[in-house]
Design a protein around this nucleic acid. Structure first.
Length: 511
RNA sequence: GGUCCGUUCGUCUAGGGGUUAGGACACCAGAUUUUCAUUCUGGUAACACGGGUUCGAUUCCCGUACGGACUACCA
C-alpha cells in the first residue's frame, strides 16, 4: 500500500468556513491514523479574489482546533513552495505537454465572443450551452485557425487561454470511496480552461498537477467537487499519471438547519451561531463575524461535533478525544447524504467537555473575565464559585454571567418574585435572620442554614415560604445556585449588607 | 433547463430481505432539588411515494417526487 499523503487545500478568499474545518479534520484523521502526512496547500490562483489575512486566519484556525500540519504553507517541506501563486512557473509545462500531444488547445475568444456563443446556443434551445467538442469548431482557437495564424497570434502576445480538449464520446468513470462508481459521459463535460490569460492555472490544472507532484494519495474534499472530478480523471489520464491518481472521497455537504440549501453565513447570523472558527473581520467591508472560539466553544468539543457530521463510529460512544477519533475513524463509515447543521448538538458537546474539566481550570475562565471587569477575586474563591455553578454552564463565559451577582450587589429586583414572595412574613424573617447572622463569628453554608431554620422556627414560619425572598434580597433574582453556598461565598458582611439594602429598598411594597 | 449526487424519528444517525426499526441531541412528563439548572426514570416521534423481484421488502431493482451540488479565464 502506498504512503498516505493527504492535503487540505483552501483558497484564501476569506474566513475559513466551518465546513472547511470539517474537511481538514477528516483529512487529518486519515493522515494520523495511517501514519501519513497532512499537507496544507494554499490555492491562491485567483488574484482577484485574494483576501489579505485569510491565509493567516486559516493557519490559526487549524492550529486552534488541533490540526497539525506536517508539510505545507507555514512549515515548509520537500515539495515547497506550497502556495500555488509561487508555483506559477511550474504549470505551463504541463499545459504545454497537453497541447503538444493534442489533448489541449489555445483559445483566443474574447469575453464578448463567449457570451455571444452562449446566447446563440440558448436561443437555439441548447440545454446546456458550453464550450465543447461541437461548439469549439465555431470558435477562435488553435483547432479552427490556420497554424501560422495561431503562431503569430501567440508571438504578438494575444490574450489567450489553454483549454482541455475533452473527447466527444467517452465514458469517464471514477471510483469514489464514499459514493462508489460515478460515471459521466464526456459529452457532458466542457472544454475547461486550464491556463488563464494571466498565465495562472485554473483550479483544475493546478490541483491535479500539485496533487501528483506532492504525491497525494487521497483527495478528501467537499461534494461540490464531484461534478468536476471526471474532468480531473481525464487530466490524470492525459498527463500520463493514471497509475498515481489519488483515491477520491467526496464528503456530504453541510446544509441549513431549517429548510433547504447549503449552510451559509446568513443562516448562522440569523440563528445566532458562528460559522467561522475564529472571529473574523472582513478587511474590505470591515464587517465582523463571530467565531466559535470567541463564542465559548472549546476546540475539543467542536472537533468532536464536527467529526460526527457525516461520520459515526458505529458504536454508541459519543465523546471522542482527537486521539480516539484518529483510532476510530474510517472513510467507509462516512455517510452519503447532506447534513443539516444543528447547533444544539454542538452546545451539548461543549457542555460535556466544559463540565469534565477540573475546577482549577474552570476557575481560570472566571478569573479571566473578572480581570477584564477589573474585579479582584482570589483563586480559592473562584474555585469555590465555579464548583457551585459548574452544573449550569454551557460556555466558559457563563461562569461570569451566572456568577456576576456574587460580585455586583443587585440594584433592582425581579418584579415577579417581589410580587409573589416579598411579604411581611418574609421581611420579618429577614430582619431577624440578619441580626442572628451578625452574631455569628463566621458565616458558612452549614450555619447559614441552621441559623435560618432557628429563626423561622421561633417565628413559626415554614422555611420554604421565605427562601425565595432571601434569594431575592441577596441576588435580585428568583433562580440560581444553592443559596447556602451563595451566602458562604459572599461572606457575613456582604450578606448582612445586602439584606439590609433589600429591606430598605423594598420596604414600600410591604406596606 | 441539463448533468451528477442523495432521501430511516424535528436533527445527527445505527441497522438491514422476516427486528417491538436501536442510540444521541432536541422536545414533553414524572422523581430529586425549598427555586432554576443538574441528575434519574419514562414518553412522543422515522424507513418519501409508486411499481416490480420475493413466501416476505424499510432493506434489492426501476420509476416518480423531493432535496442538494455543479453548470466562470472562482475555487
Amino acid at each position: 500500500m502506498r504512503e498516505v499523503r493527504v492535503r487540505f487545500a483552501p483558497s484564501p478568499t476569506g474566513a475559513l468556513h466551518i465546513g472547511g474545518v470539517r474537511t481538514a479534520l477528516f483529512n487529518y484523521l486519515l493522515a494520523r491514523q495511517q501514519n501519513g502526512t497532512m499537507i496544507l496547500r494554499v490555492e491562491d490562483t485567483d488574484q482577484a479574489r485574494y483576501v489579505p489575512g485569510a491565509e493567516e486566519y486559516i493557519l490559526k484556525s487549524l492550529e486552534w482546533v488541533g490540526i497539525k500540519i506536517d508539510e505545507g504553507v507555514g512549515v515548509g517541506g520537500p515539495y515547497a513552495p506550497y502556495r500555488q501563486s509561487e508555483r506559477k512557473p511550474m504549470y505551463m509545462q504541463y499545459a504545454q505537454k497537453l497541447v503538444d500531444e493534442g489533448n489541449a488547445y489555445y483559445a483566443f475568444d474574447t469575453e464578448q465572443e463567449l457570451d455571444a456563443m452562449r446566447e446563440r446556443l440558448s436561443a437555439a434551445g441548447v440545454a446546456s450551452p458550453q464550450y465543447n467538442s461541437i461548439t469549439r469548431m465555431q470558435m477562435r482557437n488553435s483547432l479552427t485557425l490556420p497554424e501560422d495564424e495561431v503562431k503569430s497570434l501567440l508571438q504578438v502576445g494575444t490574450s489567450h487561454v489553454v483549454r482541455l480538449k475533452v473527447p466527444r464520446k467517452e465514458e469517464v468513470r471514477l471510483n469514489d470511496m464514499i459514493r462508489g462508481w460515478v460515471m459521466v459521459h464526456s459529452s457532458q463535460i466542457d472544454d475547461k480552461v486550464l491556463m488563464k490569460s494571466d498565465g495562472m492555472p485554473t483550479y483544475h490544472l493546478a490541483n491535479v498537477v500539485d496533487d501528483y507532484l506532492m504525491k497525494i494519495s487521497h483527495v478528501i474534499r467537499g461534494e461540490e467537487w464531484l461534478p468536476s472530478a471526471p474532468l480531473h480523471v481525464l487530466l490524470y489520464k492525459y498527463l500520463g499519471w493514471e497509475e498515481d491518481m489519488p483515491q477520491f472521497a467526496h464528503l456530504p455537504l453541510l446544509l441549513k438547519p431549517t429548510g433547504d440549501g447549503k449552510l451559509s453565513k446568513r443562516d448562522a447570523d440569523q440563528m445566532g451561531f458562528p460559522i467561522f472558527p475564529l472571529d473574523w473581520t472582513d478587511p474590505t467591508s470591515n464587517e465582523k463575524a463571530p467565531g466559535f472560539r470567541e463564542s465559548g466553544y472549546l476546540p475539543e468539543a467542536l472537533v468532536n461535533f464536527l467529526a460526527f457530521l457525516g461520520w459515526n463510529p458505529g458504536t454508541t460512544q459519543e465523546i471522542f478525544s482527537m486521539d480516539e477519533l484518529i483510532k476510530a475513524f474510517s472513510v467507509a463509515r462516512i455517510g452519503k447524504a447532506g447534513i443539516k447543521f444543528d447547533i444544539h448538538k454542538a452546545q451539548w458537546f461543549n457542555q460535556q467537555y466544559l463540565r469534565s474539566k477540573p475546577n482549577e481550570v474552570l476557575a481560570d475562565y472566571l478569573l479571566h473575565d473578572l480581570q477584564d471587569k477589573n474585579i479582584v477575586c482570589s483563586r480559592e474563591k473562584a474555585i469555590k464559585i465555579v464548583s457551585v455553578i459548574k452544573e449550569r454552564v454551557t460556555f466558559p463565559q457563563d461562569f461570569w454571567e451566572q456568577g456576576r451577582f456574587l460580585f455586583i450587589p443587585p440594584d433592582s429586583f425581579d418584579e415577579s418574585v417581589v410580587n409573589k414572595k416579598w411579604n411581611s412574613e418574609a421581611t420579618n424573617v429577614l430582619n431577624a435572620y440578619k441580626l442572628e447572622i451578625t452574631k455569628l463569628p463566621l458565616l458558612n453554608a452549614t450555619n447559614a442554614k441552621s441559623t435560618l431554620e432557628q429563626v423561622t422556627a421561633t417565628l413559626g414560619i415554614a422555611t420554604g415560604k421565605i427562601l425565595q425572598a432571601l434569594r431575592l434580597s441577596l441576588t435580585g433574582l428568583g433562580v440560581g445556585p444553592d443559596l447556602m453556598m451563595i451566602m458562604e461565598i459572599m461572606g457575613k458582611d456582604e450578606v448582612v449588607s445586602r439584606i439590609t439594602f433589600a429591606l430598605q429598598k423594598l420596604a414600600v411594597k410591604v406596606a
